[in-house]
Every structure is written in C-alpha cells, then in structure tokens.
Nucleic acid binder design. Structure first.
Length: 437
RNA sequence: CGGGGUGUAGCGCAGCCUGGUAGCGCAUCUGCUUUGGGAGCAGAGGGCCGGCGGUUCGAAUCCGUCCACCCCGACCA
C-alpha cells in the first residue's frame, strides 16, 4: 500500500477526550474515530488490526473443534422472556421496538439465540457435542463507557457455546476452550493468565478470566513470578486427548485478581509474588442447565430418557484486544505492534521523494515486498524526513526500511526494528532477504 | 447513577470574571527556498463561539434551560 493513497489521518496532538494511552494512540495513529460515547468507526489501519486479531481467534476456535456461525445483532425479546433474562438484564440491554411495536433488543450476548438454534435441530445424544461460535458486534449500554475501545458500548466479541450430555463432557469442552485461549493470546504476542473468576450476571459455577498483563491495565492482579517466564502454552495440542493435565498444570501456578486475592491465605511466598496490572480479554464459563432448562434444550440419552444439555460459553473481546495489545506494547514514540497483529509488517520510507536514486530503490523494494507477499506500507508522500519517521514510529509497524540519499550514496538502506530500536545498514537486497523470512 | 469538569476553525487552546460582533499555534491551499527525526519566508481560505430561550441599544462573554462529551466513584467483556 502506498501511503499517498492510504486513508491514514494521523494526529500530532492528542484529542482532548482521550485519557489512557491506547485510546490516545489509536486516535493519533488514525485507527478509529469516535462516533458517540463508547461507539467507534474503524478506519483502515485500525480495521486491519481488528481483522488480524479476529482471524487468529477464528483459527484457534476452528482448531479446537468449533464451527463458525453468524447470529444477528437484533434479537426478539421473546427468547429472552423464555430464559427469564429480559427482566433481569437491566438497563445495560438496549431495548428497541420495531414498527409493529414488537419488543426487540440489540444483543448483549447470544445464549438464548444459540440455545434456540440447538434445541430446534438436535434431538439425540448421538449428535453431541454441539460446538458453535460466532464473531459479532454486541451492544451493552454501559453507564459509563471509557478507555476507548477497551470499554465501549458497542464491541466485537467472539462467543463460543458448547452443548454436552453431562458435566464430564461439558468439562472437556471447557478444557478445549481453556487451551485454545492460551494459544490464541500467545499467538498475539500477549502474556495471558487464567484466573478464577466470579461468573457474573450470566451465572454458573466454573469460570476463568483470561487477563493480559499491562502496566496500564484496568485492574490489579497478583501472580506467582513463574508466570512471567513460564511458557504456559503447549506447542502441539491434540484436542482429542485428555486436556485436564494441561489445564491443571496451568492452574497450579498461582494467579488472582485483587477481588480474589487475599494476602492472608495466599499460598505464594511474598518474595515469589508479583503484583501488577492486567486487562481482561477473555472469559469462559460452564453454566450447566441455566438456559437449556427453561428453554427446553433436551436430547434423548443412550437409555432413551430425555436429558437437559449442559452448556458453556466462552467469550473473547476482539475489539477490546486492539486497545489491550497497545496497552501491553507501546513506548513514548507510539505503538509497537507484535508482528502477528501488525497492520503491515514493513514500513518503507522514501525520505526524498523526487530524488531519482531514492525513488528507484524504494520502488524496487516495494515491488519486491509485494511480490514476496509481505505486507508493506510505503511512505511515498512528499514530506520532510522528520514527520515521516515520527509517523512511522507512531503507527508502530514492526520493521522500518528507510531509503534516504545519505545511505543510497553508499548503496545501503537502513533497517530498523521498531521494538528494539536497533538500526542496521545493508544493501537493498539484504534488506529484502532479511524481511522476507 | 452520585460527584466533578469541558463545549470557541480540522486538531490543541486563549478570549468570558470587567458585554462592543473573534484570536493564537499546528494543519490546509498558492509560490519560492529547503530535505536523515514533526523546516523558512511571503500570501490565502476556513468559525452564525454546542442548541433553544431570556436580559440588553448590543451577548462567545450575563441569566435560565436542554444536549453532547470527558474525568473520579459504583458497575462491567
């Protein structure tokens, strides 16, 4: 992509409304724009990141054995009356009426809809386990939206659901998602730690939050120092195998949110305990028959008797992750994207557009990257070097290749690693080879 | 939902107390010079000062009311 033709409205000043670092950087980097409180438009650069994150989540859900569906954003109130949640959910649910004066709502979550889909079609235990997920926009009318996309009212969420014949089978589904989450966040370059959680308004009795560590995180967390160095993610996962040992090993290492942490009963010695901050990016629940019972989701068991299915739901805050990753990975100059979620891998800067040698070298490198399938954003604007370099740091692409008259005179370009700040001069060919790998 | 705060040009702000018809920086447009970390000179365009009502000869400025947005808390993916 050529920056001269790319819609990237970066800002030098921070808009007044933005307080936390990810919100400021997302606005300054031209990733999104607020439409109203807690509701955002995604601009090209931000949308690319959102889609990268979404795709990683999708890959790992597929790998764990779930199938993707897409349920609507607007739901009928009738299903929610069946589950009893229409009256329970409170003002966070956005209630609307259609032209026939029917009660509708913008879905804050999808347990009712997915349960309806399941009960309509599944009659026998032989068709279990049921494993479906979708990635869809949700709306929760938060009293006080804040922190940009980290706590918006409208947000993109992956929610997966499981239907099983009994608790033991449901636990296996839960464990699959548990491991899938470890892998998902690891692939995004994040340190995510599962912590025992309250199950909240959705209800249930087996639940973990996945919290990524970030200095600027919203809540205080405590964990054993081994977490910081531990590689909790199994390299190869056989989802058909018993995953309980993997989950148990993970949970054996202490970690708790400040609500759950009690210094008096904490099993970790003071010297081994790390106190830091985190952001919740995933939450998994087992909630048994909370929905299947009132909504009549039952199947015939092997003995011919009807049993109510055991359910679980598993959420990932996809849009929240965009902000969360920035909170976990930035510096004074701007964003530092982990490569797997970066909007482009390479930022190619032509410092002197119009200079024949610079232009031809930059164009050749650009064509080379494109042909090699490497995502590249080339700054080919007629701008001064200062703003170009500062802008490239701001948007945080993992690699910068700087083509300038000074280097070209010696036959070299500069390759800069955004994260470490290391710069190295090399020939354009060497730069190609370095980044093509 | 309690407490606090802010709305003036695309962005960041001053002006408001002490009413006289709007200004600064950045950005934008034109020209010339400049080109390795947010350039210089010269010129230009852009705002019914959040909305409505009131006071006044006259309101960005004073009064009332509504709206929007932000921060702290309670709440939450």
């Amino acid at each position: 992509m050529r920056l001269s033709r790319y819609f990237l409205p970066t800002l030098k000043d921070t808009p007044r409304e933005a307080e936390i670092v990810s919100h400021r950087l997302m606005l300054r980097a031209g990733m999104m724009q607020q439409a109203s409180a807690g509701i955002y438009s995604w601009l090209p650069l931000g949308f690319r990141v959102l889609k990268k994150i979404e795709q990683i989540v999708r890959d790992e859900q597929d790998a764990a054995g779930w199938q993707e569906v897409l349920m609507p954003t607007i739901q009928s109130a009738d299903l929610w009356r069946e589950s009893g949640r229409y009256d329970d959910y409170g003002k966070e649910m956005l209630r609307i009426k259609d032209r026939h004066d029917r009660d509708m709502l913008y879905g804050p979550t999808n347990e009712e809809l997915i349960t309806d889909i399941f009960r309509t079609h599944v009659r026998s235990y032989r068709e279990l386990p049921g494993r479906l997920y979708h990635i869809q926009w949700k709306f929760r009318d938060e009293v006080r939206p804040r922190f940009g996309v980290m706590r918006g009212r409208e947000f993109l969420m992956k929610d997966a659901y499981s239907f099983d014949v009994d608790f033991a089978a449901a636990k296996r589904a839960y464990n699959r998602q548990f491991v899938a989450y470890l892998r998902t966040f690891d692939r995004m370059g994040l340190k995510a730690i599962p912590m025992a959680a309250d199950s909240g308004p959705i209800g249930g009795d087996m639940s973990h939050e996945f919290i990524i560590l970030a200095e600027t995180g919203e809540s205080e967390v405590f964990c054993h120092k081994d977490w910081l160095s531990a590689d909790a993610v199994p390299a190869d996962v056989d989802y058909e195998a018993d995953l309980q040992p993997v989950v148990d090993a993970c949970l054996a290492r202490y970690a708790a949110t400040d609500e759950k942490h009690d210094p008096a009963t904490c099993p970790v010695a003071e010297a081994d305990l790390v106190r830091t901050r985190g952001i919740e990016v995933g939450h998994i629940f087992y909630f048994g028959t909370k929905y299947s019972d009132p909504m009549g989701a039952r199947v015939a068991g092997s003995d011919g008797k009807e049993v109510t299915v055991h359910m679980g739901s598993y959420g990932v805050g996809v849009s929240r992750l965009v902000g969360g990753i920035i909170e976990a990975s930035h510096d004074d100059a701007g964003i530092v994207w982990p490569e797997p979620v970066a909007p482009f891998k390479v930022g190619l800067v032509n410092l002197k557009v119009g200079d024949v040698a610079c232009d031809s070298t930059a164009e050749a490198l650009y064509a080379g990257f494109v042909n090699a399938g490497i995502e590249v954003l080339m700054d080919d604007r007629e701008e001064r070097p200062g703003p170009k370099l500062a802008n490239m740091d701001l948007i945080g692409l993992p690699w910068q290749v700087v083509v300038g008259p000074r280097g070209i005179a010696n036959g070299v370009v500069e390759v800069k690693n955004r994260k470490t700040g290391e710069r190295e001069e090399m020939t354009p060919e060497a730069a190609m080879n370095r980044l093509a790998g």
